[in-house]
């Protein structure tokens, strides 16, 4: 079932980076994720390219198929339309920017096939 949208996507939420710095969710940049992952002992950033976006099981859900990491591993996630992903060099993006803005006041671009999203994996996982 689709993952409900957690509270930290609300505009103004305070996010702690790996070096301790605090930023608002709407002010996060690609470098913040990259730098935080660099100094993390367990987590590593992957590039996950959106390959397909299909309707989900419920009217407000979508199934997004990603090609994850260098190996282009195929991973599907079902999320609500308003769920934001962070696109490299672009920032927050969702399948329904209007809904994300309305529900969470978080400005979003439209998530499209071909977009490359920030995702996490474990260091040393192969």
């Amino acid at each position: 079932s689709p993952v409900a949208l957690p509270p930290f996507f609300m505009r103004g939420s305070i996010i702690q980076l790996a070096d301790g710095e605090l930023k608002r969710v709407e002010d996060l940049k690609t470098e913040d994720f990259i730098h935080s992952a660099e100094i993390s002992s367990e987590l590593k950033i992957d590039s996950s390219t959106v390959e397909r976006i299909d309707d989900g099981q419920t009217p407000n859900a979508v199934v997004i198929q990603f090609a994850v990491g260098e190996l282009k591993a195929q991973v599907c996630v079902e999320v609500l339309l308003e769920y934001p992903f962070f696109v490299f060099g672009q920032g927050w993006s969702s399948c329904s920017p209007d809904r994300t803005t309305r529900l969470f006041e978080l400005s979003c671009a439209k998530l499209c096939v071909g977009d490359v999203c920030v995702s996490l994996t474990l260091r040393g996982l192969r």
Partner: peptide, 19 residues
Amino acid sequence: VPVFPWHSLVPFLAPTQSD
């Protein structure tokens, strides 16, 4: 004010078994 860790905001996409 709650403070959330950076890694909560991006998905953990563990590759599944490839076909």
